[in-house]
Write a protein that binds this DNA or RNA. Sequence first.
DNA 1: TTGTACGCGTTATCAG
DNA 2: CTGATAACGCGTACAA
Lengths: 334, 334
Amino acid sequence: MPETSRPRVTMDDVAAAAGVSRSLVSIAYRGVAGVSDETREHILAAGRALRYRPNTVASRLASRTGRSLGLFLLDLRNPVFADIFDGVSAVTEEAGAHLVLGVGDTAGTRDRLALETLLGARADVVLAAGAVLSDRELIALVGADRLVSVARRVPGVDSVYADDLAGARLVVDHLYFLGHRRIAHLAVPPTDGRTDRRAGYEVRMRELGLTPQVVTAVPTLEAALAVATPLLGGPGRPTAVFANNDLAALGVVEAAGRLGLRVPDDLSVVGYDDSPLSGLRAVGLTSVDQHALDLGRRSAEAALWRLENPAGEVVDVSLSPRLVVRSSATAPSS
Amino acid sequence: MPETSRPRVTMDDVAAAAGVSRSLVSIAYRGVAGVSDETREHILAAGRALRYRPNTVASRLASRTGRSLGLFLLDLRNPVFADIFDGVSAVTEEAGAHLVLGVGDTAGTRDRLALETLLGARADVVLAAGAVLSDRELIALVGADRLVSVARRVPGVDSVYADDLAGARLVVDHLYFLGHRRIAHLAVPPTDGRTDRRAGYEVRMRELGLTPQVVTAVPTLEAALAVATPLLGGPGRPTAVFANNDLAALGVVEAAGRLGLRVPDDLSVVGYDDSPLSGLRAVGLTSVDQHALDLGRRSAEAALWRLENPAGEVVDVSLSPRLVVRSSATAPSS
DNA sequence: TTGTACGCGTTATCAG
DNA sequence: CTGATAACGCGTACAA
């Protein structure tokens, strides 16, 4: 016999069962002042007996003070977004705020859809991590006042990020001092708004008197593999590749392997994000730590702060990226 | 000058601007019958001009027919859950259903919390992927009638899974025929409900006249590394380890490497999930493909079907797991 | 085809 | 501390 589809129990039911008014039940469940501890416990007991669970949908509609954050994550396959989620989640939870998630894809085709879903769910603030949309589009869609940009600086908008210009510089300098001169960069497609890593690379290359060589691909392992293959296959191939993130770097390593090139003997590779896999001996990827967990925490804090201070100054938190040296980049052999 | 915090525009505003009633606006936006195409377009134009966006919170509260699915994902660091998400998301989207996400952690400490959040958000059906809770707890919390178990069979509950008993058997047989006799299994902690891989391993080992050796750890790289180290460090160590998932398998490989053991020469390792990283040359992990994307799709379809057929027979979809042979498991050298 | 009125489950205000 | 009563924004018969 299938479980009988139980009737939805509401606050009124709890109120009736506890012999009090519905307002009191609301007060009791929200944990605000207005009930004696005794009555409160009595009400909660009645609720438990009825298996009552507050309806957050109704609650969010009725509440005018309820803080809810919408978090956009570009790519669930990239562990850096798990770190960001953990940071945001921890802060949100301990603040008792509501968190709603939206997920995109690396090509950026779902950015708009996911962001609109968050807006439709009436997120008071939208935290955008990894969005492909340009600064302008982002602001037009979400509104500069409801947006917190995570891991990317957007001028005029609350931003919490690690300095990508500096991070790219760390990488180029590292490779340069190892002796590399032909250093290629695997960047994300140029249509989007995440341009600082590439810009940092190009600026530093020129400062060092070197010629930038940029190829682009969406930041996945597969796409990186596809573009790295011709890059490494031809003559005059680079001696080092700086990839936009660790997943792409792994794609480069894979491409090199398939071409019979050894890493790091024949090719040095550097990634970005310092994901957990980079530390494995089998991988040993030199990378840049952008402190994603902290980015998550700080951006959630910024969002909550913004709700309290609508007219406060634009938040601009810049963390210092850290180069993590491993075995995938050494002095060139030739 | 900061963007002026625009007043929330509602259907009434759109109705006023378009010179029609609010009901008509509702009808127009939902795309149901009841408006002339002409009027409809006129209304939508007015909505665009006002930058109106339907409030899904209010919509979900008012609607009695709205289908919304709640998806629980255990671990954002495990790519298998990204596959499941993609499958669920695709089906949900094309069905026009609402999808809300809840995220747990590998220790299972957040299972209850995340599931309750989904319930509080009034998900009509909850899809649970990777939940640590036991069958009994899961049913008690969510209700057998609102639950779809993903990647795990729960008797009496709609379940979409790949046969873990068979998958484990595939692995043991593979290792056995390669010549291994001391095959250890790295399982998830015994308190939870995901027991089939371990059971399949133990049954098959006994059938083959071998002695099962099980160690447990939460399914993360770090935890696997921690328990694999003593396992591989002592005398009489196994010649092969079958890990509960790919992340754990990577932890085993890492532990082996730190102990100076070569994979597969000194130790064979097999994972589970056939995650993207397993295919890399630098990893080359033999694993079991459980068709996670399909699991996602099928479970979402099951959930939507259940909404239409509340009294329908219990869904039981069992896919056949597939062994993917790579370089991490070979004949034992000794 | 269009408009009216009631309800969804809470929150919040304001007298008792 | 308690209990009516109006929002919250929208869905949905039902009537026009």
